[in-house]
């Protein structure tokens, strides 16, 4: 018969556990601050390759036509 298996944290495991904790903290931080595409009402936007866009607008490949249905607002604090 064998008894219930017990888990012991040994000193040599500490660096590994610290690494796991650090990774989890990084993931949590990333999720908390959001990626480069904040979603949700009133805040969604995406970073784009602005240089590429402006080059293609200048070349006539894309349009610089002004859109409808927008208004200027005070810059949000980011």
């Amino acid at each position: 018969m064998t008894g219930p298996r017990r888990w012991h944290v040994r000193r040599r495991d500490a660096p590994f556990l610290a690494l796991v904790a650090l990774t989890l903290a990084c993931i949590g931080g990333f999720l908390a601050t959001g990626s480069d595409s904040p979603a949700g009402p009133g805040g969604g936007w995406r970073r784009i390759d602005r240089d590429a866009l402006e080059r293609r607008i200048e070349a006539g490949d894309l349009s610089g036509r002004e859109a409808l249905w927008y208004r200027a607002v005070e810059p949000a604090r980011r």
């Binding site: 009133g42 995406r46 859109a67």
Partner: peptide, 19 residues
């Protein structure tokens, strides 16, 4: 200047140089 797009219910507030 940021702009607020009122076209769809996302109502994105878009900073300069972004989509």
């Amino acid at each position: 200047t940021d702009v607020a797009c009122d076209l769809c219910p996302h109502r994105c507030v878009i900073p300069e140089g972004a989509a």
